[in-house]
Design a protein around this nucleic acid. Structure first.
Lengths: 224, 224
DNA sequence: ACAATGCTTCGGCTACCATCGAAGCATGAA
DNA sequence: TTCATGCTTCGATGGTAGCCGAAGCATTGT
């Protein structure tokens, strides 16, 4: 029974955390639900078997997201019923907005700006994306050389791909990983466009004022 | 949490029984769920507290109905999610196997045999079913007259349809309702093929040995 | 190669809750 | 009144499922 899946508090917390459409790792969901990873793993297996969530493997992580909008819709309906009896569930609020804006994912740019950047590259045919695989076009190579002084030979690596789609933590969409993603992030730092936050362990990336401008000039969308 | 309320099999059965919009008494709901009145009372109190059902006192009875269409909608949504993963409710049902085998649904035959009967009628083109609507064919009329001495004029009723699909709660498939369903059940009783259980309030229908044979001869499937 | 991280599986423990018997109220009938 | 019916509350029991510690894979980094 599907309702029984949603009925458990721990699972309900996980699902609620996924309601914004973003995908979260198993560990993050465990933390959201306030349970250990083992227990979370068991819950997630059940949710997956019940067709409520879908996993996406990415490196050592397993990202989970709601299967589709139908699931989200039913969950909203349940929340609506719960709300009118005054038994609303208290949701842990969204986290650091700076973290959502721009942060380090391993060694490349993630967050709103990271997703925006890949969007821009894709829409201008500088890269071609097919599911998880991303390929740099010749126009893309010219673009990188011209604006960021990045040459293709800097990007070769024995085991790591040049481009790769990486599921973004805060947005529920992909940003650019791989050696190119790392090289671009490194260049942003060298150009003093951005720098990792001084706080130890923080993943926040702070953009300078000029950095923000330059970044927007290169990758900005019309809405900015 | 609302979902936890729906998650319990017994409560889910009650709610399913109320999905047609009609109000049922606490005892009837207990029978639908295959549990004792005490247990049902506890469940109904929880459902009421959760705002899923509303009681209406009437004499010694307490009628329960779904609070409103929103509740029904959410329940349908949950059923939809359950259906598409094939995770239909399996382990539920009345404890009494006799109740699953054959029972009275209002005034017609339900349970395994009821579903089997409609299956047989449909497969032999004695009736034609389109979703909830069922139509008696001319072959069907001949069949009824020949084997059960039921003539079409016995079935006319100002407001009630001759045939109707009624969702069987233990089988999750349709059985035959309407005036025809009632007439056939009545004929089974008159022919001493079957009789309602003597226990007051029981919905179990007991088939006699000869009745079981005759029924199988008319509506039996290959598996028997 | 080795270590570290993320996640899963396994085994046991525990707590919760559905369940039922028995008794207690309420309503309606004789 | 007295009895019968319908439903609820109380108390005790048992099965189930959530939970975590420890260990086992899988992937990645050094």
């Amino acid at each position: 029974m599907v309702a029984a899946l949603v009925g458990d508090p721990a699972r309900a917390n996980m699902l609620t955390a996924l309601m914004n459409g973003r995908a979260l790792t198993a560990s993050e969901l465990a933390q959201e639900a306030g349970i250990t990873p083992q227990t979370a793993s068991s819950h997630l297996a059940k949710l997956e078997a019940g067709g409520l969530v879908e996993p996406e493997k990415q490196g050592r992580h397993r990202y989970y997201r709601l299967t589709d909008d139908d699931v989200a819709g039913v969950l909203e309906g349940l929340a609506g019923l719960a709300a009118r009896t005054g038994h609303m569930r208290v949701r842990t609020g969204p986290k650091d907005p700076a973290l959502r804006r721009a942060r380090i994912c391993y060694d490349h740019l993630a967050g709103d700006l990271g997703v925006q950047m890949l969007d821009s590259l894709r829409s201008r045919n500088l890269v071609k994306q097919k599911k998880q695989e991303i390929e740099l076009t010749t126009e893309g190579e010219r673009f990188l050389a011209k604006h960021l002084q990045i040459s293709p030979d800097m990007l070769s690596h024995p085991r790591r791909p040049v481009c790769k789609a990486c599921l973004d933590w805060s947005e529920r969409r992909h940003h650019l990983a791989g050696t190119l993603g790392a090289a671009m992030m490194q260049r942003f730092a060298e150009l003093k466009w951005a720098a990792r936050d001084a706080t130890p362990g923080s993943r926040v990336v702070n953009f300078t004022r000029t950095g923000e401008k330059q970044f927007a000039a290169l990758f900005g969308n019309s809405k900015d």
